Simulated assay, not measured.
Amino acid sequence: MSVTDSADVVATLRRAGCVFAEDEAALLIEAAGADPARLDQLVAQRVSGTPLEYLLGWVEFRGMRVGVRAGVFVPRQRTGFLVEQAVSEVTADSVRVVDLCCGCGALGITAAAELTGRGCAVQLVAADIDPVAVACARENLASLHAPVYEGDLFDALPAELCGHIDVLLANTPYVPSARVADLPPEAREHEPLVALDGGADGLAVFRRVAEGAAHWLTPGGSLYVETGTEQVDTAHAVLREHGLAPRVETSEEYYATVVIGTRPI
């Protein structure tokens, strides 16, 4: 059945279980423009479970519209707390920022924008193992002339960055393998498994990042990673094992937990 107006769109989305049907309807109508057939197509795709962000082609993250495409991890709003923490702790006039496991590049681009906005010079580099994510991030970071490398964690980065990273943002997967099946269908059926599955205890990729961070961070530089609350103690132990000073920040507003490891000066 053709969806002809806002009320129809809202009702259709609500029947499909969309919690924020009114907001989603407005965005889909905007995306369709004046094309009713296109609106019908978008609504049908949304009802079938396609993530809203894939249909729009962007996600709003910390006040910016960041491009996303099918097959790329959609950054969660709670991860904005990670960026907030990293940005708030920068006191230098210039910094080297690396967005590792960058996905669409949302963490790097928003951190760079916020730091630049307060007069800090930012050298931004991003990397991801997924070629689809790399292509998406390159589009998003093109205006900043920030390179995006494809490869496995630190192997993707230029050697000259080793020991010179001030801020390392790493949105590593932290869902334990056994719990991936419990994720909402939007995530497990559409987003790449490599961006969701964190191994047996959810911290397999985090361990590798922590090990590398001990060498790639500049003295006084910090690694910022989101984890689950039940993973904090293990994450702390991993950071200490690799010579990083650990601490944790939590936010009730974001429902987020960020583990931070700083390389001693």
Rank of each mutant, 00 (worst) to 15 (best):
A32P: 04
G228I: 08
A34P: 00
F73D: 07
L169T: 08
T229G: 06
R65L: 09
R188T: 10
D166F: 03
S143E: 12
V43C: 06
A113K: 10
T250I: 07
A127Y: 06
P185L: 09
V225S: 04
R118K: 13
Y174Q: 04
V68K: 07
Y54Q: 07
A16L: 05
A25P: 02
R207A: 15
C101D: 04
A178E: 14
L141N: 03
E160L: 00
S48R: 15
Y254V: 03
V125N: 00
A25R: 01
L115V: 10
A178V: 14
T257M: 00
R76H: 02
L196P: 10
M64W: 13
E139M: 05
A111V: 09
A187S: 14
V167M: 05
E186D: 12
V10H: 02
P219C: 04
M1A: 12
T227N: 03
A156F: 08
L56M: 09
P192I: 09
V238R: 01
F154S: 00
G108P: 06
P131M: 06
R76Y: 02
Y224H: 12
A133C: 02
L27T: 06
V47S: 01
D182C: 09
N140P: 08
A181T: 13
G108Y: 06
V59G: 03
G67M: 09
V259W: 02
H215P: 00
I260H: 02
D201W: 03
R62A: 12
I109T: 15
E241K: 14
L203F: 07
D152T: 10
R263Y: 07
P173N: 09
M1S: 14
C102S: 14
L183K: 08
V232Q: 10
A133L: 01
P173K: 08
G202A: 11
T227R: 04
A126I: 05
